[in-house]
Design a protein around this nucleic acid. Structure first.
Length: 205
DNA sequence: CGAGCGATTCGC
DNA sequence: CGAATCGCTCGG
């Protein structure tokens, strides 16, 4: 195992960083960070290349709008630093990072990764050998890393099962509208989707 | 208690 | 472009 991979295993984004400004945190700390999983005894990891910010208080695209506490959204109201994972379309899971203090419901949807470790396992889980098709979509990356709502919703992101390892440089990024939220009225076109410039592992353009 | 539908993906 | 497929949400 290379030094680089060993570094991913041991580092964690500090817990207190998760309750800062969601946009600043998403752009400066989550973009380029490494999402790592050790599920079924296998390490998989990818660099976060694309994400979307959702704000529970005002954002009509957010499941928790307007601060709506339900069985499904309860995890988003917990203290930042845990996973909000939900099941959708009867077959896919989506992974979010909760990024607000307890009682607020802001989250960042991780939309795309650049595979870094455990690529052979990702290929098995995704039933494809095409590296570009392993983690370039929110449903795809959950499948590749073995993340499910049933097993991982609400878990701490500083643990041993699923964690975030800090980025090692600053990245230039683009800001564009989010995907699949046509119902969100005036929030539909907010440029709250961010992706690393010139990276090939992006979900859609 | 059940109809309607979704922060998607894949194949036709 | 439409099917897959199921749990959450809300209206009755």
């Amino acid at each position: 195992m290379t030094e680089h991979i060993l570094g991913l295993l041991n580092n964690r984004i500090p817990r207190e960083h998760y309750c800062r400004d969601p946009f600043k945190f998403a752009k400066e700390e989550l973009l380029g960070a490494y999402l790592c999983s050790n599920i079924d005894g296998v390490l998989t990891a990818g660099k976060i290349t694309e994400l979307e910010v959702y704000i529970g208080s005002c954002d009509k695209a957010c499941h928790a709008y307007p601060n709506k506490l339900t069985k499904r959204t309860a995890t988003m109201f917990r203290q930042g630093g845990c996973a909000y994972v939900f099941f959708i379309y009867g077959m896919y899971n989506q992974f979010n990072v909760v990024v607000s203090p307890e009682g607020q419901a802001d989250a960042v949807l991780i939309r795309s990764l650049e595979p870094v470790a455990g690529i052979e396992e990702m290929k098995k889980r995704r039933h494809t050998d095409d590296v570009k098709n392993l983690t370039t979509g929110p449903g795809k990356l959950c499948q590749a890393l073995g993340i499910t709502a049933r097993a991982h919703d609400g878990i701490n992101l500083s643990g041993k099962l699923l964690w975030l390892s800090p980025n090692t440089q600053k990245y230039k990024f683009n800001a564009v509208p989010r995907v699949g939220i046509d119902y969100a009225k005036e929030y539909k076109d907010k440029p709250w989707r961010f992706y690393i410039k010139n990276n090939l592992f992006i979900s859609r353009q």
